[in-house]
Design a protein around this nucleic acid. Structure first.
Length: 268
DNA sequence: CTTTCAGCCTGGGCGC
DNA sequence: TGCGCCCAGGCTGAAA
């Protein structure tokens, strides 16, 4: 489910609903989420929630320990964070449960790929790559990141140690919007192409955020907020259908074991 | 350094 | 209805 826009939406909504709440206790139900020693989180207040790359970052108050604490939650494929008033009955795939002074926060994850990372300083939470929506992610900066890489641009866009936040859907959509073939070596893009890639990356991510992301279901349970960006998808999951611009059949190919969707006519 | 590949998990959809 | 297979929006670590 979640790439940058979906995680951004989740983080914003959680920030609104969780900031100021105090943790009564945390129950980790899936042993896969217990990596290393669990810091004491009971009694701490949630001070802030924001996105870091594709992770949701929760900052807790120092509490009685005098040490700050951050939790980075990676949703991976199927992770969801559900805020509710404590009356939710459906416990299927419930992996962790924060009981708060008012309501609860549940981590629900069917495939159990999601991860929890605990950090004692903000610096440790920094992602490896540049956030494409950051002010300092200019076209020139993108050009530096691309460097002379010979890796095809589509798998390159998925590398979280370069740019953070892009996943398989938006990578295909961005390259289509920029008119760039997914097979082009990353370092072969000229100035104009880098400019288009940069502009379309930011435009598509922003628009996806405005539309609450692509097909993600109700992390707010009863409210059932769903993304609507899927109606803007131009190539993803459209193999065999015609390109909206030129009519050519959209192709699906496999690059680095992931599906890539593209129009061989519009993308060069 | 690069690229490929198996693996981590579960469930939905498909063809037979 | 059931079975086996393939697929999935992510990422890691080992191997070539």
């Amino acid at each position: 489910m979640p790439e940058l826009p979906e995680v951004e939406i989740v983080a914003r909504q959680l920030a609104r609903r969780l900031t100021g709440r105090t943790v009564r206790h945390l129950r980790i139900l899936d042993p896969l989420l217990r990596n290393g020693v669990l810091p004491r989180v009971s009694g701490r207040e949630i001070v802030a929630v924001r996105r870091s790359g594709k992770r949701v970052l929760i900052r807790f108050s120092k509490g009685g320990t005098r040490r700050p604490l951050w939790l980075a939650i990676h949703l991976r494929m199927t992770g969801r964070l559900i805020c509710h008033d404590g009356t939710r009955r459906d416990r299927s795939h419930l992996r962790a449960r924060f009981v708060l002074d008012r309501g609860e926060l549940w981590f629900v994850d069917t495939r159990r790929f999601g991860t929890f990372g605990w950090y004692a300083s903000e610096a440790e939470t920094a992602p490896g790559g540049v956030d494409p929506l950051d002010r300092d992610c200019t076209a020139a900066r993108l050009g530096e990141l691309l460097g002379a890489s010979r890796q095809p641009i589509k798998p390159w866009l998925l590398r979280q140690d370069r740019l953070v936040g892009l996943g398989n859907i938006y990578a295909s959509e961005i390259l289509y919007a920029a008119g760039i073939s997914p097979f082009r070596p990353a370092g072969s893009l000229d100035r104009g192409e880098i400019g288009r890639l940069h502009r379309q990356t930011r435009r598509i991510l922003r628009r996806a955020i405005e539309n609450c992301g692509t097909t993600f279901s109700d992390f707010q349970d009863s409210r059932g907020v769903e993304g609507s960006y899927q109606r803007y998808l131009r190539v993803y999951d459209r193999q065999g259908e015609s390109c909206r611009h030129c009519g050519t059949a959209i192709a699906r190919v496999v690059q680095a074991q992931r599906s890539t969707f593209h129009c061989s006519d519009c993308q060069r």
